[in-house]
Design a protein around this nucleic acid. Structure first.
Lengths: 240, 240
DNA sequence: TTTGTGATGTGATATTCATCACACTTTCTT
DNA sequence: AAGAAAGTGTGATGAATATCACATCACAAA
């Protein structure tokens, strides 16, 4: 059995898992809560990056738009995820947009407050670095997967990551418990909707996956893993 | 004048610049020195990641090989750069290879020793996070550039990054003071040698760049910036 | 029920890029 | 100086992927 199948139940998987309960509590104490409606933006590229965000509930996508109107989805964050540009103590500016894609409840952490907290608590600082490192490695491995194995490889890698983020085992099948449009998948891998549609069609015909009331169900994970030369990275790193 | 042209002299630009003199000294105190010859590997994917490396002199490339024998160059580190997988305090394993491409003198830092140092010195810990954040943003922006603007965009972005890393102004020209083969450039952008050769040919014909005794000389930086929709990120972020 | 809207599926065609093949040049080796 | 090895340049061709143009489907709103 692979790591991918040993994952915890969906609802408990989030990138804030690499913090201890105590640390997370400390972080929560310096947050102020905010609600954001689907369609709004948390920040735009060019905005000052001086906050961290903890997604208490909802979904936020980190995207980049090109001049020609194409959009690239770099990350999708869900309930329990912590995100934001995290070069604390540096006057910097966002390179990407944060689009709220589901009505969300968000805990906002001011850089200033974070600074103080990290100074006070060495153990939190250490966990924070751990989290930063994990996020970086997630970016690096995704980069590799999207660059090295063509569009089919990029799609297969993305499907695996979706399993690790939203997957629910059902016998030997894995249901991706999150509705995704072809366009969304396309924007995640830098391809067109049509290409994704054709690739998914191929995978369905080959019985690698199926659609069950509009959810993607993975029937043959090893096949996907083979296409993108998946090395079975830790689940918390191999995410969307 | 762009940031790109306001850069410090080549020899002084390195990613360890985001540390203060004192912090760097502290780091240097816990290093042990090592020599590595061109062609050797500092680590391979799968090796335990429990060290940081400070390149006192030389060059190291971080690469990934595919099953079909293609190689992808993720980073190129030079004299003064600090690198290594930096999720300290985590049992993790390298996802990439570190290939020594010039005879090098390397300061090696054990994770254990780093841990202690970071605990003792809050200010160093803060700078360390800053450095981690910077490296992550470098990865993210490179990812965007290589994914969103086709191979010509990827090449132009890479040339700009090479200017920021190895560039020397010469009037309005910028000499990339580092010999690069077409194959190397190809591996940096996930293209073939032939494609790079043709793209460079086009750029030469259009007077965007020229070769001067085997060094690339950029004549029209704004053109390159236009192709990859460069936003003039800080120079220390926009590197190879 | 009708109508509008977003999503899916698919053919035809165009573009981008890789592959193959080979000549030529430069640099290194002895 | 001669030969080997590495790098460059370029045509011909093919594969991967995007683009365009529709038909169809699913579902929500009026």
């Amino acid at each position: 059995m692979t790591d991918t199948l040993q994952r915890k139940p969906v609802s408990q998987v989030a990138n804030s898992d690499c913090f201890t309960e105590e640390s997370l509590t400390k972080l929560k104490e310096i947050m102020y809560e905010m609600r954001a409606e689907a369609g709004n933006h948390l920040f735009w590229e060019g905005d000052t990056a001086d906050k961290l965000y903890f997604l208490k509930r909802g979904q936020v996508k980190i995207t980049k738009a090109s001049d020609e109107g194409k959009s690239f989805i770099l990350y999708v964050y869900n309930t329990g995820d912590l995100f934001g540009q995290v070069d604390p103590f540096q006057n910097s500016v966002h390179s990407f947009n944060a689009e709220v894609t589901e009505n969300s409840i968000i805990g906002v952490i001011q850089q200033k407050d974070l600074e103080v907290l990290l100074w006070q608590h060495g153990d939190l600082a250490v966990e924070f670095m751990k989290w930063m490192g994990l996020m970086h490695r997630m970016t690096q491995t995704k980069f590799r997967d999207l660059m090295m194995f063509g569009k089919p490889g990029a799609l297969c890698s993305t499907l695996i990551r979706l399993c690790n983020t939203y997957g629910k085992s059902h016998g030997s099948d894995i249901v991706i418990t999150k509705k995704l449009t072809n366009s969304e998948l396309a924007d995640m891998i830098g391809a067109t909707r049509e290409s994704v549609n054709r690739m998914l069609g191929d995978l369905k015909r080959a019985n690698i996956l199926a659609m069950e009331n509009n959810y993607i169900v993975i029937k043959d994970l090893p096949y996907l893993r083979d296409i993108c030369q998946c090395e079975n990275c830790p689940v918390d790193m191999c995410r969307i």
